[in-house]
Amino acid sequence: MIRGRAFVYGDQIDTDVLAPGAYMKRPIAELAQHCLAAIDPDFAVSVVRGDVIVAGYGFGIGSSREQAAQALVQLGVGCVLAKSFARIFYRNALNLGLPVLVLDSEHSIQRGERLEVQLETGRVKLIDKSIELHAQPIPAFLQTLLADGGLIPHLKKRFASAQNYQR
């Protein structure tokens, strides 16, 4: 269960906005301070652990740079809800343990509104308005990946059990 305030953006939030090229050489903590700055200079300073990004179509379009998802993880973003995701971003996010859900419902979520997101079912509650929205739950085999904390911990587990099996 994710609980946090909404940060609302439009369509095609691209990877250059999420992870600006100029900071790509720098450590992730520094890069993350510039995440979304081109369209929302306040984002990095105001976001707190568990907050939720709500966006339109094509979230994460552009480069394969994983820092686009990693910056959000670094800043403590609880999950991203969008009408659709660019496929590389979608995979990167889950591989890094960041939940991303496709939001089916039309909505008028405002910035700062409090949300509660249930990853298994895709239920999205607007806490103050007692409205409920629907997102597509993450496919089952990817939920396992997410539950393990991302691809690397997931593979670690797989390798460990393969070794036990061989013994």
Binding site: S64, N92, N95, I152
Partner: peptide
């Protein structure tokens, strides 16, 4: 297809 770094490690 294009992939990110964690996936590449995989």
């Amino acid at each position: 297809v294009g992939i990110g770094a964690t996936e590449m490690a995989g």
